[in-house]
Write a protein that binds this DNA or RNA. Structure first.
Lengths: 357, 357
DNA sequence: TATGGACTGGACAACGTTGTCAGAGATGAG
DNA sequence: CTCATCTCTGACAACGTTGTCCAGTCCATA
């Protein structure tokens, strides 16, 4: 079984001793192709790139040599020479999260249309790792960056990069200390709509369980919740609001607190999909039917009983929009950062329509 | 709004006219740093790479110049010189599919420990796109490739690449026409176990709904199903087996066929998660309680009623194992391709334990 | 036959980095 | 004081590609 060494410095080219390029069992270069075809180096380049100025006859000789040697153009060298890398870096929280993987896919699609490849890295909500990843991408001279900011990250570290021309778009959460293109969901409005929906079903005591308030989306959703409550003239009891890490045990504790005591809530607004999943599991375990609206849609939401009422985001839309902003900059657009908010959509499936007990 | 041009050639560096490197608002190079610090070029290189042989005093002058100019080493050039790129390419079917995104995350983690960055691309089950992506990664001189073969792809196109030293690992499905490291789930065994479980619950007429038989995993799972049936001495009626595209409408039709007529099946084995989701939805719509076992676990499987019995794969394990094989090769391991099969696990949650009607 | 133009092919420098090697000072021994 | 040794530094070539530019060839025309 392979071993598992610690990386000295993550994201740095490993320091192999000895002469360079040794580990490749010799890669033929254009020079080799030229020698074999009996033509000049530049002629090979022309053939490879489909440039005009080569006789059909010569071109064919070159082609033959290329396939015979198994030549493949070295894009590293090409990149070095041309200055554009046709690649984009994507830093997000966790590619295994369906929300981010949908988003990633949308970015990939748009990138493909523009001929770009995609580097992806997960920050795990760690600002240091976000920075390492983003800067490693910059060192590779990606043309652009798409970043889901980690909680608490200060993005001024990107200033030299952006000045140097790396197009940068932030998604899901705004950057800190920087003006840049940003694509967000209308988190507060969505949460307000979700909460208002519960109120319209007759609920007066509604709990909010969300992620840490230093995560922008979590804070915004909490704000929307409070606004909706205030708008309806409803008080918010301390025991109803829990914000912090979303590990299932934490959610269970928060849920137990919210649903007990003299001020027991009759409905639940869950700040993200992890909370929703944990809460639904816990309610199932407790065998309690409590009204619930979650932020973020889930694949099986319609198959639960009752179906899960959610405030759905549009991850693919966010990704697509972000990528479009990015490539617009790469195509020459300049100007101050644009901020686009995509609406969230209330999807009623039953759990949010349970009346107060 | 940004425009959406068609890419001339996907994954090729865009042809910008004019002198190269123009779009960067000048990136300082080591030469610039050297000039500013009043030292030689190589000294800057030494400082940047932490090589010995530089006085603390000189090093500090260089550091100052670096931060003043916002210098960042150009890894493209470094790569060109050193020959190793510290990057890995991952080609899979669809990064938005939770199975593949978990897998991707695991590969990313191992890569990070080895100091490598990850290129990701989705083939959408199109062999041509798979090849385009893989070769584009090779042109960037990734050190290694991890590939989920698209249905019907012939992988001999990779021979020159592998000969040239690009470590290659196939996952989820074996390569065609090539000997290489491969990490698979024990698909047939898993499907056999799942089917046998239904049989042990008293079912005699069990349907199999799966993906196209030219997808290796689908074929293997079908084989496992047939083996289990044969082992129990049970016939397999034609109307029970449907293999093909997994769009919901197709699944609905197949399911209707399997559950009707004189040979109506009493239980269902679903060949992958997309089929399972479609089938569960359809059964719900028809309001029928039919025994069901699915291949692949689903996030909410325990929250359905009844809970979903599945044959669970271990995507993270597959990804981790594949990445370990890959880096073992990069660390010098040679020899013929290794083939590792990871077991699938039967998880009983209720839907597979419904008795025959 | 000479001349011009169109076309083809190749020599050369450059992209930004790193490996090699040799030079410049400083230090110590004889 | 000289020579050897050691430490630090920098000049230079090379990685594989592409842009520039010039030289040669071929044909048609004056």
């Amino acid at each position: 079984m392979p071993s598992e060494p610690q990386a000295a410095t993550p994201y740095a080219v490993g320091d192999t001793a000895g002469p360079p390029a040794q580990r490749y069992g010799h890669r033929p270069t254009m020079k080799d192709v030229a020698a074999r075809a009996g033509v000049g180096l530049k002629t090979v380049s022309r053939v490879v790139n489909g440039e005009p100025g080569v006789t059909a006859d010569t071109a064919e000789r070159v082609q033959t040599a290329i396939t015979a040697l198994g030549f493949r153009r070295n894009d590293s060298a090409r990149i070095l020479r041309k200055g554009r890398t046709a690649s984009v870096g994507l830093v997000l929280e966790d590619i295994a999260d369906p929300f981010y993987s949908s988003l990633s896919r949308a970015i990939e699609e748009v990138s493909r249309l523009h001929g770009s490849l995609l580097f992806t890295g997960s920050s795990d909500e760690d600002p240091e790792r976000e920075e390492q990843l983003a800067l490693a991408f910059c060192a590779r001279r990606v043309d652009g960056l798409v970043i889901v900011p980690a909680a608490g990250a200060d993005h001024r570290y990107l200033e030299p990069e952006i000045r140097a021309g790396i197009a940068t778009v932030f998604i899901d959460r705004p950057p800190l200390g920087l003006d840049a293109d940003t694509v967000l969901t209308a988190n507060a409005a969505g949460a307000r709509a979700g909460t208002a929906h519960l109120i319209s079903q007759g609920h007066r005591r509604i709990a909010f369980l969300g992620d840490s308030p230093d995560i922008h989306t979590a804070a915004e959703r909490a704000r929307g919740y409070r606004e909706a409550m205030a708008e309806a003239g409803l008080p918010v009891h301390d025991s109803w609001v829990a914000m912090g890490p979303t590990a299932p045990e934490r959610v269970e504790a928060a849920l137990a607190a919210a649903l007990s005591g003299p001020h027991a809530a009759t409905a639940l607004f869950c700040g993200n999909n992890r909370v929703t999943v944990a809460a639904v599991r816990q309610l199932r375990a407790l065998d309690r039917q409590v009204a619930l609206v979650g932020f973020d849609d889930l694949e099986f939401a319609d198959l639960l009983s009752p179906g899960l009422t959610v405030v759905a985001q549009d991850p693919a839309g966010i990704g697509r929009t972000a990528a479009q902003l990015l490539f617009a900059r790469l195509d020459g657009h300049t100007g101050p950062g644009r901020r686009i908010e995509l609406p969230a959509r209330l999807v009623m499936r039953g759990s949010g329509e349970i009346p107060p007990a």
